[in-house]
Design a protein around this nucleic acid. Structure first.
Lengths: 153, 153
DNA sequence: TCACATTTAATTGTTCGCAATTGAATGTGC
DNA sequence: GCACATTCAATTGCGAACAATTAAATGTGA
C-alpha cells in the first residue's frame, strides 16, 4: 500500500501539532473578536487589559502583566494608547515611586456596559455549549500552566 | 454570603474566557519553543513555514498562507528572512508569473533532521499523554474551524 | 551610613499579524 | 481583440510580543 509520508515524519506534520492547533485557534478568535471590539475602539490585547481593570482598578503595571503573562515592553505602549483614548489614567504611586498605577477614567468604567455584548457573540460564534467550552477552557488552562511551570526551570 | 463580584459580570471575568485560555496557552507554547528553535535559528512562525515545506516543497506563497491562515503581508517578509538564512529559494513561476514558488535549499532540507528533536521536547514539557494531547488538539481544531466558518459570513 | 542588590517601568530593536493599497499577470465576456 | 474583473505577491502603516538594556526607586547587609 502506498504511503504519502514516512512514519518517522509523523511528529513533524503540521496537523499533528497541538501547538499549531492552539496558535491557529488564537488567531481565529482574534478575527472573530475584531469586528466586535472595533465598536468599542479596542484591540484584543487592549480588551484583555480592560477586563483586568474592570475586575480591579488602580493596580500597578506589574499586576496586569502577571495576570495576562505580558511584560512592560508590551504593556507600556499599550497603556499609553489606552490613556490617549481617555480610558485609563497612569499615575506614579506615592508610596512606591517605581510603580505606575493604572486607573479607569469614567469613560473606561462606562465602556464595561458596552462590552457585555461581546462574550455573548463569541459564545454564539463558537457554536458550542457553555459546559463544553468550560471543560475545554479548563483543559487548556491546565496545559498552559504545565508549560509555564517548565519555563521557570 | 459575601460575593466578590456581581453575577452579571461573570461573562466578563478573565478566568471565564476560553479565548484568554487559548491566547495565553499560545504564548506559553511560544516560550517553551523559543530555546528549542533558537538552536535551529528559527522563530516559531518560521518553524511553521518549514513544517509546511518539509511536507511539500516548491509551493506558491498562497498555499502556505492557506495552511497556516496567514496572508502575504506576514509571509513575504518572513520568507525573505528564510531566504536570507539560505533555507529557501523564492522564484517566480514560469507558468503563472503572479505566483512566487518557495523551494527548500539543501540546507533547508537538512534542517529537518535537527528539527525531529523538537516535538519530543514539547511532548515532555506538556507533561501529558499523547492520547490526551491528540484529543485536546482535535477539540481545539474543531473549535477553530467553527470560528473560521463564522468569519466568512 | 553606605555600598550593593533588587524591583519596577520605560526604551530600543526585531519579528509577527493584519488591514488596506498597489501593480503586474491572468482570466472573462462581449 | 479588448475592456473589465480577478488573482497573487509586495508594500505600507499600525499594534502587539519579547529580549535586552537603562534608569530610578527601594530594600539589605555590613
Amino acid at each position: 500500500m502506498p504511503r504519502k509520508h514516512s512514519a518517522a515524519d509523523a511528529p513533524l506534520r503540521l496537523d499533528n501539532q497541538i501547538c499549531f492547533a492552539v496558535y491557529s485557534a488564537a488567531h481565529a478568535f482574534n478575527r472573530v473578536y475584531k469586528p466586535l471590539l472595533d465598536r468599542l475602539g479596542l484591540t484584543y490585547p487592549q480588551y484583555l487589559v480592560m477586563l483586568v481593570l474592570w475586575e480591579r482598578d488602580d493596580v500597578p503595571v506589574k499586576d496586569i502583566g502577571e495576570k495576562l503573562f505580558l511584560d512592560s515592553g508590551t504593556l507600556t505602549p499599550l497603556l499609553k494608547r489606552l490613556e490617549a483614548a481617555h480610558l485609563v489614567r497612569r499615575t506614579r504611586s506615592s508610596e512606591d515611586e517605581r510603580q505606575v498605577l493604572i486607573a479607569l477614567t469614567p469613560q473606561g468604567h462606562a465602556l464595561k456596559d458596552k462590552a457585555r455584548a461581546v462574550p455573548q457573540s463569541i459564545l454564539a460564534a463558537s457554536d458550542c455549549s457553555v459546559s463544553e467550552l468550560v471543560a475545554m477552557k479548563d483543559e487548556i488552562v491546565a496545559l498552559r500552566d504545565r508549560l509555564n511551570a517548565v519555563i521557570g526551570e
